[in-house]
Design a protein around this nucleic acid. Structure first.
Lengths: 225, 225
DNA sequence: ATTGTTACCTACTGGTCGGTAGATAGATCG
DNA sequence: CGATCTATCTACCGACCAGTAGGTAACAAT
């Protein structure tokens, strides 16, 4: 009984700690995205959180650890999303489509933006290596998805490596211009990009057939460009 | 005679000055691209040029002026390229294709990379505004090219704004991964991206017709993916 | 020879920033 | 109550860095 109460109190305290730590990371990510990692000072971050700088060090151990944690959470979120989609039994092209749209949404969030905008050069070598590996793995899985699509015949023959780069590049770059103040939701942007990548700019001859293709590719969702 | 010799000597001196200034900018751009603008110190830059830091101030008046000059030269180069292509009497889709490939090459160069990688946030408000305007104008012109293509029927109906963002995004992002050490030339990357954007990932039904379309779109150049 | 100019230097400043030392108010617990 | 632990503070340090002051050797112009 006594022990139970003790661990309970401990848990509650730890929960508070984690909550505050998370708030710190979120605010930091926003600051990094606004000003850039190097130009966002810890004093400024502390000010945003209504504490003083040394207080931050109760929750984190260095500035680049903050960056690493932000980027880690983003990449873990992406990882989870991709694994979930991959484990479904949908055709490769649809998996790719689903991921692309979801990925666009993640890049529009604080941590996602942070992953894409803040240079990995600021990280310690060890953390930098970890991040690079995780990102390479994501890239590689998407590449394989495309290769599968080609094998299945749902994707036209192409260089999966370069197409993946184009895909990620287009979406990653949204972090530089996308704003929630506009009319577009991140999802709408992702779907528009998807549509462009799927159909291409050159008009399709047999409109009917193309529409069927796209429908299959997109699943049941409605795409507007 | 005397006056002629005088102006001649002056010109020669000025030429030397401009040459050295240009070398400074080029080296700076490389440093910025390697380390990021904020992390590249002027002492480091001076070291690379085998001079001391105060010497730099004989050629430039502040660090952010260096960045501005680098980005300005990049954007001027792009401007010139686009104007040249626009003034030709080719169909809009071909103009777009030509520019996309050339733009990819420019982004692979020192100044182009600098334009795309180094944050405009470091610039003084006045210079930042100038850069933003120049970039917006480029973006707008490409957007109009796409709108023309749609009007001509050579480009499938789409949202020109978003397609332009995807196009620029994919190419801009190459600055993060492209290396001259690999097998690919910047031109090859540009052409592969172009091909992807033109044909789309969904296989074309009537292979014959599609090939004709692509040929028309690409002009006489050979595209490999 | 004198004067001015060019292209560079040595030496320094002022400010910012990441990070630390060490204290303290308040809660927790025996 | 006394002891301990948590969360936060004030005050400071050392490093770095953009930018400046002021000098100087070389060279040219008069």
């Amino acid at each position: 009984m006594k022990k139970a109460a003790w661990t309970e109190a401990l848990q509650k305290r730890d929960e508070q700690y984690q909550l505050k730590r998370q708030a710190l990371l979120q605010t930091a990510a926003r600051a990094f995205n606004e000003l850039g990692f190097d130009r966002a000072s810890l004093d400024d971050l502390a000010r945003r959180l209504n504490v003083t700088k040394p207080t931050l060090y109760y929750y984190i151990k260095s500035k680049d650890e903050i960056l690493f944690e932000c980027q880690k959470q983003a990449v873990e979120h992406m990882r989870l999303t991709l694994d979930q989609i991959r484990s479904s039994d949908k055709p490769a092209l649809e998996k790719l489509s689903l991921f692309l749209v979801r990925y666009t949404e993640l890049v529009a969030e604080d941590f996602g933006r942070c992953l894409v905008l803040s240079s990995h050069k600021a990280l310690q070598p060890k953390n930098r290596a970890k991040m690079a590996a995780a990102r390479r793995r994501l890239d590689n899985d998407v590449r394989n998805l495309i290769a599968q699509g080609i094998a299945e015949g749902s994707i036209a023959p192409c260089n999966p490596k370069l197409v993946t780069s184009a895909l990620f590049g287009a979406v990653n770059w949204t972090a530089h211009w996308y704003s929630r103040d506009g009319e577009l939701t991140p999802r709408a942007v992702g779907e528009a990009f998807l549509s462009t990548f799927l159909s291409g700019l050159v008009p399709r001859q047999a409109a009917q057939t193309v529409r069927k293709d796209q429908k299959q590719a997109r699943g049941e969702r409605a795409l507007r460009v």
